[in-house]
Design a protein around this nucleic acid. Structure first.
Lengths: 243, 243
DNA sequence: GTGACTTAAAAGTCATACTTATTTGATGGA
DNA sequence: TCCATCAAATAAGTATGACTTTTAAGTCAC
């Protein structure tokens, strides 16, 4: 049956090697803007800074280069590339930027992305979801209802995230499915700002139930419409928080 | 193995070094399924296969690992990861898969993605586009009209691609903007299949003009609706080609 | 000032020696 | 027989020094 969780990662702080340590230091620094575009890093300087060998630095740089964060040129050095060229869809880059000062802007971009993707995914899910997925969906929706009142936000969040993950996966589109982690991040981040303030919007809870029903009924149009309302709510929330 | 496969793609990814050569050989091979998930590659074997040093192989592997195509573990080797874990949004992975046997499926995924993103982007563009961008948009739309008849498909395609690029950029969302390359790839790939058959659908051409008008008028709802029709046409086309 | 030539800086490559984690399996005791 | 423990084998990870290649930049002749 169910093997180990397919994406059983919370965070993985385990540095799997020296190159990862360097990467996990340089990546956040660059995406945070500590090294503005145009900045030139020299390999041997990095060696000294991190007290590691060329091998290690080179591997880290190579990865940063594959994310289009930097460009390595002979006789020049490792140059930080302009922001517009970064691979902003790379999960690692997203993670780094969410952890940095760009977090608010990043959350906006991602929420806009959600608003575009999730309704479409819900529509597809209504056509492709398996009975098991429909059951999961209904289960999470009901649990959301159950935990929507009385300081149970953490539990609510778990089901909220799971709900959206299932929708994306049930869409049958591998690219949509891969956005599950991103959506999870957005939902978590969003809630962190109001965790002590209020229970979830009751209307949003109802909408989740409606989506689950629509998917189970195979009503793509309704599933899409209700999901659109959910994501519109998320967008509105952002405008309220920082207009 | 083949060193310079006949993948004469438009933009030659000029091997900037040995590690790139290895990467540009391993990447396509893995995404094509030549090494199914679970396959174990050993570093020293790759060294011999490509006749390069350890350094070079390791750098290539590190990049593949950052794309979640493989996982490198001590005492085990470099293992190809399950397809569901690949970073399917990585431009390089997209390129590799488009060049391989998965191309049709990949085009479907990407077209679904387009259908979700572009209408939203057009709506945002109506609110954020600069006068210059509006002018560009109108210009490309008019040029599409002008080249829509009489075996001018290559020229038509240029403006079609440019049009969609501008819309995505004008949305003001960096993530949408980065999908310009992907959309370009889809549009180009789509046309290759019918290049000798027919002129573009006149209705689609009209819709582009309408989108340009709506964006210029700041009518987000109309821009979104007309763009949705364009992408729906693209989806329908796929169903016709391979139902 | 233009163009060709030289220089030097920094990344790229290679070979080798060494370290570390992890699987495997063999040993030995309950 | 079974389980725990420990040892050996293995493949990736790291360090280092010598060497090559690219190329920005400076220099010289015209």
């Amino acid at each position: 049956m169910d093997e180990q969780g397919p994406e059983g990662r919370g965070q993985r702080p385990r540095a799997r090697g020296l190159h990862d340590r360097v990467l996990e230091s340089l990546g956040p620094a660059i995406t945070a803007g500590d090294y503005p575009p145009g900045t030139v890093l020299r390999t041997d300087e990095l060696e000294r800074r991190y007290d590691v060998s060329r091998t290690v630095v080179r591997e880290a740089v190579r990865v940063l280069e594959s994310m289009h964060l930097v460009e390595s040129r002979r006789r020049v050095g490792v140059t930080v590339r302009p922001t517009e060229e970064w691979d902003v869809f790379d999960p690692q880059v997203i993670r780094w930027r969410l952890a940095g000062p760009d977090r608010p802007r990043q959350l906006r971009s991602l929420t806009a992305l959600r608003s575009a993707i999730e309704p479409a995914a819900a529509g597809l899910a209504a056509e492709h979801a398996t009975p098991e997925q429909c059951a999961e969906l209904t289960g999470h929706a009901l649990n959301m209802v159950a935990t929507s009142r009385g300081q149970q936000l953490p539990a609510y969040l778990v089901h909220d995230v799971a709900f959206h993950r299932v929708v994306l996966r049930a869409s049958g589109n591998e690219m949509f499915a891969r956005l599950g982690d991103v959506v999870a991040e957005v939902l978590t981040g969003r809630t962190q700002h109001r965790v002590m303030f209020s229970d979830p919007d009751p209307e949003a809870v109802t909408l989740h139930v409606r989506v689950a029903e629509a998917v189970r009924a195979g009503d793509a149009e309704a599933a899409e419409r209700y999901t659109k309302e959910i994501t519109l709510g998320a967008l509105r929330e952002l405008d309220i928080l920082a207009p």
